[in-house]
Amino acid sequence: MIIEIRWHARAGQGAKTGANILAQAAIRQGKYAQSFPEFGPERRGAPVQAFNRISDEPFTIHSGVTEPDIVIVLDPKLVGNVPITDGLKAGGWIFLNAPIGAREAQERFGWQAFRVVTCDASGLSKRTLKRDIPNVPILGALAARAGVVALESLQTESISRLAKGRGTDDPVVKANLEALALGYEETDFADVHTQSLPSSGTKPPLPAWYELPVAGVIDRGGTAQVYQTGGWRLKRPELDLNVCVHCLMCWLVCPDSAILLSGARIIGIDYRHCKGCGLCETQCPPRARAIKMVEEEALQPAEKTP
């Protein structure tokens, strides 16, 4: 049997690396495994997917995973914005990086038909690695609950990746192993409560070839408005108009024209398009410091179109 896994994350959260470590660890254990990312717009914060297949027998499939046994969600704010449960069978697993209980996640997101594991992988990662790299602890959680690979294989794989030129006593190696172990230990599990799958919501079909403009010409300007890059944000800029000196530096550098002006004065930030790059903060003069990048609140859904 082939176990198929789909990762949902934002570019920069380590889904690709996580999938890679998982496959390497499985191969270390003598299994047949595969990992590959889905290549989309490779911009930090954009929703991405990665895939794994793991099996005791050789297999030949090279396509993306559309009917996963396990879904791993590295950013809980993606829930509701990307099709997390698409193709997931009743009784399938969802591993969610979130500081909430599994039962709560089930109820909050309507996941009663699935086995849900929650793990505060970001929290654990910040505690051990001093950075938000949720892929390492979530792999620990996966080994603990779904048993796809053994924790030992993940440990050996992590050591061999990181220990090159460092030695196993290196603090980075130790921190990684600790993050992995904590993920293994600190999980919460909720079993299936119903067999009825949540409705996946019908997506409008994309246009047929004869309905598209010839050669894909975009026949007008200003179409960047339609593309709401606000959904990519991991951190949000907060603007304090009390200290802003209206030098317009932030407006000048913002790549998404998300700094709102009235005349020559800043009036706010367009969070539908601000993708959280933080350039405005770096350019805000030290004597003003009117913009500060802050973490998006956990589990707050991404901005919706008003």
Binding site: G40, P41, L206, P207, A208, W209, L212, A215, G216, V217, I218, D219, R220, G221, T223
Partner: peptide, 15 residues
């Protein structure tokens, strides 16, 4: 207008 834009797997084949 934009000509020859990025065309990812969801549209390239239609073109």
């Amino acid at each position: 207008i934009t000509v020859g834009p990025v065309d990812l797997p969801d549209y390239f084949m239609e073109h």
